[in-house]
């Protein structure tokens, strides 16, 4: 691989742009194709399909095998609320490969002492998320129990198409949340994307157990495979 090709791919990764390295398995010739510049490439159809699946693999065109190394942005997790659950969820998510950021305007919660290894922004969500925009490769959890903090983040997350949106709170709390979101003009299909009550139903009790149940739900959303229990029900 030429260093320029690797550099182009790594730069796209850092800037959260999708693309693919195309390697001819016949002569080793290589190029990096940005998703944004796909139309001009002779393998645009094949690359587009692989990008959509997020899967690297071999494709054949005009009798030649090509290997496509797909690069999709690394998944991120934004936690609204520097709360007890976040103290467990941040390290669990990091081990699972997500870049974690915590946002909480309450300076008593948002301290580096409570989160020694995770970036904590002591800002309101609308400020923090303006600097670090959400996208469809980002998961978000609303964990403060305070609509003043959670709701603005939720509206931004729904508009950004985050691949996972989870909200802490009982069914009653969530029903009131849905009412407020309807007042913002969100339709039922969009609101159905909110995971609430948050987390897989594994009987979690402690903050760490709840964090595990949330992590499981995020992985399921990322990999897009229905749970065995859901497939059975369908």
């Amino acid at each position: 691989m030429r260093l320029e090709v690797l550099k182009a791919m790594n730069a796209a990764r850092r800037e959260r742009r999708a693309g693919a390295v195309v390697t001819s398995l016949a002569d080793g010739e290589q190029r990096f194709v940005e998703a944004a510049a796909l139309a001009a490439d002779p393998l645009s159809g094949e690359i587009e399909a692989a990008l959509r699946m997020g899967k690297s693999g071999v494709v054949t065109a005009a009798g030649v095998d090509y290997f496509l190394t797909i690069q999709a942005p690394a998944p991120r997790l934004t936690l609204i609320g520097a709360v007890h659950i976040s103290q467990a969820l941040a390290p669990i998510a990091r081990i699972a490969g997500l870049d974690v950021t915590i946002v909480d305007p309450r300076t008593a919660f948002a301290t580096p002492e409570r989160f020694p290894e995770t970036p904590v922004l002591a800002q309101w969500p609308d400020e923090a998320l303006a600097d670090r925009p959400l996208d469809r490769f980002t998961a978000i959890c609303l964990l403060t129990h305070d609509p003043k903090i959670d709701d603005p983040a939720l509206t931004i997350a729904l508009r950004a198409g985050c691949f996972y949106v989870g909200a802490l709170g009982s069914r009653k709390t969530h029903a009131r949340r849905l009412e407020r979101m309807r007042a913002h003009g969100f339709d039922e299909a969009t609101l159905a994307r909110i995971h609430a009550p948050i987390g897989l139903d594994i009987g979690a009790v402690s903050p760490a157990e709840i964090a595990v149940s949330i992590m499981g739900e995020i992985v399921a959303a990322l990999r897009k495979k229905p749970l065995r229990s859901e497939s059975a029900a369908a």
Binding site: L3, L6, K7, M9, N10, R13, Q71, A74, G97
Partner: peptide, 11 residues
């Protein structure tokens, strides 16, 4: 390590 860390290391 994640794939992107591996490729960043290569660079």
């Amino acid at each position: 390590t994640r794939e992107e860390d591996v490729l960043a290391a290569a660079e």
